[in-house]
């Protein structure tokens, strides 16, 4: 499922990042790469974007981009 499907407080391990070009490079620069663990921290108004905890960094990502990031929920 995509990272946007995580509930607040839920953790997931990234299995695929289906973005291209500048978006992919920016995600990679922020630590959002295959194998990384992310935690869903909060959702914005109207659920337009998600705040992810990636290592020591907090990254806000819009829904359309978040739906390109596939995760499997950590047990």
């Amino acid at each position: 499922m995509s990272v946007f499907g995580l509930k607040v407080g839920q953790c997931g391990r990234i299995t695929a990042v289906k973005a291209r070009g500048g978006v992919a490079a920016r995600l990679s620069a922020l630590g959002i790469v295959c194998g990384a663990e992310v935690t869903a921290l909060a959702f914005s108004l109207f659920n337009s974007s998600i705040l992810l905890g990636v290592g020591y960094t907090r990254v806000a990502v819009r829904r359309a981009v978040a739906q390109c990031i596939e995760v499997e929920v950590c047990k």
Binding site: A42, S44, L45, F46, S48, S49, A60, R62
Partner: peptide
């Protein structure tokens, strides 16, 4: 900026 993103998306 994060929380109000939904408002600005509209």
């Amino acid at each position: 900026c994060f929380v109000t993103d939904g408002l600005f998306e509209r």
